[in-house]
Design a protein around this nucleic acid. Structure first.
Lengths: 198, 198
DNA sequence: AGCGAAACGGAGGGTGTATCCGATTTGCTT
DNA sequence: AAGCAAATCGGATACACCCTCCGTTTCGCT
């Protein structure tokens, strides 16, 4: 997986400039209107034509993935912090919370995220980050299970789904923070509890 | 809440015919394409112009609510069956499952449903059925709590949210039935477990 | 400064939503 | 059976958004 070392030509200045302008405009629009924001409007605000936007980001998902890059790095940083904790239960809880906040970056983000989780082809730019999150979650779950803080039957993927769900509900704006807290408590109690099935 | 007894004129035949055709076409399209189906296509398949569709159903939600009427009645029937059970825990579990199936009638249905739950105005035709479901869920939760099968801090609304979430995930088509079962188990374990917080 | 490749962006085709208004259908009356 | 007025219909239309083609412009290199 070596990087092509030789760059036959220096990248054009306008390319970088436009890309940056597009990302900034997209971030604003995604924040305000959710992931369904008008790409036409994004292009206009960035001062470029529609074609330029599509040349830089072939699909809405590609643009979304690029905009999420920053937040993704924040998440990695938080993951490093969390890894410093001593209690496996705390680690899992905080990791779930960090994921949930990541999923809540823009309203409607859970939708394309789940679509990415569905596809096994790497055609979707969101698939890779998604898979990474699931794997990480599974590691935290296993650690919690070894410490006796999680039921053996729970999988990392399950809690990934739970975190996406909470983020989805939050994104609909239908509920207050209090109800969300109760839901989080419900989930936590759900993976902590005994495996008492027959 | 008396019905206006006098009908100055017999309702026109074409009105009823068109309404029925629209509902049938809408049902087919919602089933195939989810709640985002093209209303234009629905009108065409029903053999009417777009204006006729909008005259009968002012918004997509109104059409959705009308199409859901049938399923809503099925749900009421199941509720009667469930009320015959002896075990409060069984009742709650089966009611949650029945709701979840109702929410899964069409792909994407949870979205407008949550939007309806958000609005306090009865402008949205989905708000009323929604409120009814929450109230019913709360009744089942309370019964389960009295029998010691549910934590006291859980509210009906919480489990309504949980059921909507599971339906949403199912609707994304990203997961197999196995993962959904684990998620349901997680939720059940969540509301059954002890209230062991400090 | 000039050249060729790379990038740009406006124009345009396609789909979907929602509304206006002249034409049509319908139920009722005579 | 025929006519009337009101209710209903549906094509035409305005608008928004997505996405792509292609002639024009910009940029890096020499």
């Amino acid at each position: 997986m070596g990087v092509e070392g030789q760059q036959g030509r220096k990248p054009r200045a306008d390319v970088q400039r436009n890309r940056a302008a597009l990302l900034e405009a997209a971030q604003r629009h995604f924040l305000r209107d959710g992931v369904g924001a008008s790409l036409e409007a994004v292009a206009k605000e960035a001062g470029v034509g529609p074609a330029t936007l599509y040349r830089h980001f072939a699909t809405r998902e590609a643009l979304l993935a690029a905009v999420l890059q920053t937040r993704s790095e924040e998440l990695v940083a938080r993951r490093a912090d969390i890894a410093q904790l001593s209690d496996a239960a705390d680690m899992l809880r905080q990791w779930l919370r960090a994921m949930e906040e990541y999923f809540s970056a823009f309203s409607g983000l859970p939708e394309p995220l789940m679509a990415a989780a569905r596809e096994r082809e790497p055609g979707n730019p969101l698939t890779l980050p998604c898979d990474d999150l699931i794997t990480t979650t599974d590691a935290y779950v296993r650690a919690a299970q070894r410490a006796g803080h999680a039921r053996p039957s729970v999988k990392g993927y399950d809690l990934f789904l739970a975190a996406v769900s909470v983020a989805w509900i939050k994104g609909t704006g239908a509920t207050d923070e209090e109800a969300l807290d109760r839901l989080r408590a419900l989930i936590e109690s759900g993976y902590r509890g005994q495996d008492d099935e027959k």
